[in-house]
Amino acid sequence: MSDDIILETRGLTKHYGGVHALEDADFVLQRGEHVAVVGDNGAGKSTFVRQITGVEQKTRGTVIFDGREVDFKGPLEAREAGIETVFQTLALADDLDVPDNIFLGRELFKVKLGPFSILDYKAMRQATLDGLQKTAVKIPNIRNTIRNMSGGQRQCVAIARTASFHSKLTIMDEPTAALGVQETAQVENIIRTLKAAGEPLILISHNMRQVFDLVDRIIVFRRGRICANLKKQETDPQDIVAYITGAKTGPEYMETAV
């Protein structure tokens, strides 16, 4: 395979008992490329993400990341390999403050003593402030627990978490679904920063305007299968909706798509 490919999946499949949530997904992502994954609710988009990031164990198929076949046993392994993910169900701890959440699972230490390693709060706070400034995320006081923050602020914390660490690949599962106009704009700015930095992205979204604003290529999922793979210049929102609803199917997917 070529060095330009950061992520490839071959025949990626996930069955939950009888539910074929994901079937034979062949997918390629180039370095620096931003790709949108779209599809109806239940089409298998989140399932696709969970198989790549090791949150669940795939039924079959291959994942090749950064030139090597990988089989992540858990999300930490994926993260350590360089994949940052904003999951659809927010992975935040309500009773912790912003720096605690951003650094959860990869804390900075003053003294390393195994499980009783001493946290370097000051460094984590400073890094959080720097990260938030870079992403222009606005949070009144980072030392409050995030329990009482708005949905948008919480989402921004989750995204700041991925943006604060240099990653080889970022995946966002419907990051703006619950956000207002301003907050959505903030998230989109973060995505543009990633693009400028040359960091590849998989963006799951229902928002056609957003998709056409931000990404290079669009993948359509339907009932667990990929049914289209389109360059942005060669398609338009109506066309995408036709693929999503099943009115159209990409020629290369004719035999398999349903």
């Binding site: 858990g74 999300p75 993910t85 169900t89 927010l90 992975a91 309500d94 699972g105 990869r106």
Partner: peptide
């Protein structure tokens, strides 16, 4: 205690 799934997804 706050969010076990979040803790797991964070790699704890």
């Amino acid at each position: 205690g706050s969010n076990e799934d979040a803790a797991r997804m964070s790699g704890i």
